[in-house]
């Protein structure tokens, strides 16, 4: 398992603090240079990738079905905002709660098997819920749920204003990011890392590893739900793309490109992949092929990912 985490070695966390401040500064000035909708979309996916990375990077569990939580949260947020007229914060909360419940059920099933089986089970359960989404009447089938109202946050802040929306997304992203950071640096997080390194040993030390894994899984699914719900409000749409298996693959790719097991890697990876999709949108189907090539190249030549590679070169922790 150790080589999954090549980026997380050194001692100091001052480097992490500096990187965090740099990231916040970038987010503050970026809207002046980059199209805000692109930034907001990338931030939602960055949070999604961070949630996924919590499992693969810090517990050693590869979930190949994270689209389930992202997509269903997106649907429930969109539906509750549009059909029930909930304000955005409650709509997102509805989505998050849905993701948490699904995460609890799927997690409880998937942790009954290890390693490669875990990946196959999460993928199969996600596919099942994709098929349910295809047929469920409220999801709108192929059309999805469109024209989702952004509404007023807490009844006060008008989110149809792009600046307000941007600030809200940045706050949500940073909150999720810091929560994950807090978790992986807590005593609970240390146990997760122990499970990643050697589960049998952690069991022999008296830890109920299944419970730790389940809590981590639910947490990851919940944050993925937060990302999906926010995305539904930002882009004002929830569709089958969000729940289908290529989405589960995409989030794996984002974390892999950025650096599995690094704190900042998934953020970098998400921006790279979303930018790539934007610029390559004209070449249509080639996007899939290029994503496949990036997958193969990362696995064979570039396993540390962008951030992991930087951390390795500078001998710091990122």
């Amino acid at each position: 398992m150790t080589d999954l985490t090549a980026g997380a070695q050194a001692k100091t966390s001052r480097s992490e603090a500096i990187a965090f401040i740099l990231m916040v500064v970038c987010l503050a000035i970026a809207p002046a240079f980059i199209y805000p909708v692109f930034l907001m979309k990338a931030l939602c996916f960055a949070l999604f990738a961070c949630a996924f990375n919590l499992l693969i990077g810090f517990v050693g569990l590869l979930s190949f079905g994270h689209a389930l939580y992202f997509g269903w949260a997106s649907y429930l947020t969109a539906y509750s905002a549009k059909a029930w007229g909930l304000p955005p914060e409650l709509a997102i909360l509805t989505g998050v709660a849905t993701a948490a419940v699904f995460g609890l059920i799927a997690g409880a099933l998937a942790i009954r098997r290890q390693g490669i089986y875990f990946a196959m089970i999460t993928l199969a359960l996600a596919q099942m819920m994709f098929l349910v989404a295809v047929r469920a009447p409220f999801t709108g089938g192929e059309d999805g749920i469109q024209a989702v109202p952004r509404g007023r946050l807490f009844g006060l802040i008008d989110l149809s204003n792009q600046t307000n929306m941007y600030i809200t997304v940045v706050v949500i992203f940073l909150a999720g990011f810091l929560l994950i950071y807090r978790v992986i640096n807590s005593p609970f997080g240390e146990v997760l890392k122990a499970i990643r390194e050697n589960e049998a040993r952690a069991i022999s030390l008296g830890y109920k590893t299944e419970r730790y894994k389940l809590v981590a899984f639910v947490l990851s699914a919940t944050i993925a739900g937060l990302a999906g719900g926010t995305k539904a409000i930002v882009l004002q749409i929830a569709s089958l793309t969000d729940v289908n298996w290529p989405m589960s693959g995409e989030v794996v790719l984002m974390a892999l490109v950025g650096g599995l097991g690094t704190v900042f890697g998934p953020v970098a990876g998400a921006f790279v992949i979303i930018a790539m999709q934007n610029y390559l949108a004209q070449v249509g189907q080639w996007v899939t092929v290029i994503q496949g090539v990036v997958f193969v190249a990362c696995v064979l030549l570039f396993r540390r990912g962008i951030v992991g590679e930087i951390a390795h070169l500078l001998r710091i922790k990122l």
Binding site: V252, Q291, V293, V294, F295, V296, V299, R303
Partner: peptide, 13 residues
């Protein structure tokens, strides 16, 4: 897990 990721990439290609 890397084998799974690599063959997934090949499938996409």
């Amino acid at each position: 897990l890397y084998g799974l990721l690599l063959t997934f990439g090949v499938a996409l290609i």
